[in-house]
Every structure is written in structure tokens, then in C-alpha cells.
């Protein structure tokens, strides 16, 4: 099987805008799932509400497209009731960190055995570009027309302190690394968060001088700094450019988890 066989062919093309990174992230996820030889009958995709959360509708497994922010709670029910099923969650930054923030930290704390893929595009895409908890300071959105003045959540750091067993961050440019990270997440018992910085040319790019899709992806590539390199720079007391973000694996550990198949 190839990752392409996991798609509901009759649902393609997706509703996503031209150059939306979500499609890439679905590719990588399905590639990881396929590489592990998982059966589609035994895999369930769950999501909340948002562009990113439309992903399960394009995948031929059983899938639950739930309410805004609550995907992890629904997924917890599925996983605890049927630990033998593989549960993968697609979510967005608003879905996971704003309205679903409480479910997010508690799912990490419980360390429920599931893999959560967050398409972090720094914006509320589906509702047309409002600020989210990950909107960078100064960025223009429809609800921060003079530039966002709020602090920003580091989703991966949050997941680490909240207790997740595996946390990694990549971008929609790093398809190979991302696929490998997702695969590790799927294999790690317990809660795994894969944060993917991804482009939303329509709702974010258009307002923030990142209109061109390729340019945005180049931006993601150029501003990503490998965690190890970042740590080395810090250790050596060298300056780290301000607008860089770290990518790589933040944690992999083996804390007691819930819903792990016997």
C-alpha cells in the first residue's frame, strides 16, 4: 500500500486553498501510518473544527469530526473504550490551544495513548483570519488590525511540561523529518504531540507579507533552527536570531500512560 491508498479518492480535491499546508501534513501522516503497516480498519482519525480538522474527512478510516476544541476528549473516550484501536487526532492552533487548551494539557497529563498532529498556522483559518494563541506578536489579523499584542503559546513546550511522552515540531517544508517524527509519535506509547508549523496563505499570508506560497514555505525553512543547534548556540553564549523557532524532537520518554493496548 502507498499513503495515497488511505485517501477517500472520491473526496479529492480537498476544500483547502491553493498552497495550504494542511494537505502536505496529511500526506506525511498517512505516509507514517502506512509505513508502520497499520490497517485502516483499526485506525481512527479524530478532529475538532477548523480547516485542519477537515482532514479526517479525506481519509478512508473510521473518523470522528467533532466540536471545536474538544477532539482530544472525544479521542480519549474512543481510546479508553477500545485501546486496541490506533487513535490519531488532527487539530489546529485555535482548536488545540484556545478553546481546547484545557483538554490539551489534561490529555498530556493523563498521557493517553494517541498521536496528535497540530497544524499550527498562527491563525484561525476557517473563520477568515482572526488571532489565535500562537499568532506572533505584531502580526496582523482581522481581530488584531494594529498588530497582535498578546503573548504566544509554545505548544510543544506546553506539552512537555504537561507530561506528554513524545513531542516534536517541524514545518510543512520538512516533509521527510516530519514523517519520521510522526512515525515516532505513532510508535511511542502515551501521548504524542507533533506540532507542524504550516502556511495559511489565505488568512495569514495575505495580511502579513507572506502572500506567495513558496515564499512562505521558504520562510518556514529559513527560520527553523534545529533544537541541537539552538542549544549549542545558547551554551556557547552565542546570539540566536530572534525570529527563529526550534524544530526537532523535544522529548521522548516513557512515563506511565493510559489506554495502551495490553
Amino acid at each position: 500500500m502507498s499513503f495515497r491508498d488511505w485517501y477517500r479518492i472520491d473526496r479529492l480535491p480537498t476544500i483547502y486553498c491553493v498552497g495550504c499546508g494542511n494537505g502536505t501534513v496529511i500526506n506525511c501522516t498517512l505516509h507514517a501510518v502506512d509505513t508502520l503497516g497499520w490497517k485502516w480498519e483499526e485506525t481512527v482519525f479524530v478532529s475538532g473544527i477548523g480547516c485542519s480538522s477537515r482532514a479526517p474527512g479525506y481519509i478512508k478510516t473510521d473518523s470522528l469530526h467533532t466540536t471545536h476544541g474538544r477532539a482530544l476528549a472525544f479521542a480519549t473516550g474512543i481510546k479508553l473504550a477500545r485501546p486496541d484501536l490506533h487513535v490519531v487526532v488532527f487539530t489546529g492552533d485555535g482548536d488545540l490551544a484556545a478553546i481546547g487548551g484545557n483538554h490539551f494539557i489534561h490529555s498530556c497529563r493523563r498521557n493517553v495513548d494517541m498521536t496528535v498532529i497540530c497544524m499550527n498556522n498562527w491563525i484561525y483559518g476557517m473563520t477568515g483570519g482572526q488571532g489565535s494563541p500562537t499568532t506572533p506578536r505584531g502580526a496582523i489579523t482581522t481581530t488584531t488590525p494594529y498588530g497582535s499584542g498578546e503573548g504566544v503559546f509554545d505548544l510543544s513546550a506546553l506539552a512537555v511540561v504537561a507530561g506528554a511522552n513524545h513531542v516534536a515540531r517541524w514545518t510543512s517544508y520538512h516533509v521527510k523529518e516530519l514523517t519520521r517524527a510522526i512515525q515516532t509519535g505513532l510508535e511511542t506509547p502515551g501521548f504524542s504531540l507533533i506540532e507542524v508549523l504550516t502556511q495559511c496563505p489565505t488568512a495569514y499570508g495575505r495580511r502579513n507579507k507572506l502572500r506567495d506560497v513558496a515564499e512562505t514555505v521558504e520562510y518556514l525553512k529559513d527560520h527553523a533552527i534545529l533544537l541541537q543547534k539552538y542549544n549549542r548556540l545558547v551554551q556557547e553564549g552565542k546570539p540566536v536570531p530572534e525570529d527563529m523557532f526550534t524544530v526537532g524532537e523535544f522529548i521522548r520518554r516513557n512515563r506511565p500512560a493510559m489506554g495502551v493496548p495490553p
Binding site: 470522528l64 473516550g77 473504550a81
Partner: peptide, 26 residues
Amino acid sequence: GVFIQMEDEIASIAAVIGASWTGARA
């Protein structure tokens, strides 16, 4: 069976619905 205390009532009913889709009476 499975008992779980969730973080709030929104999560509780969500988990119940999720479990129900696996066929469990919830």
C-alpha cells in the same frame, strides 16, 4: 468497564460520545 473523571463536563460528554462510537454503552 472504564471509569474516567474528565477535566470538565464538556470533556465528559465528549468522551462518552467517543466511547459510544466504539459500541460501548456509555
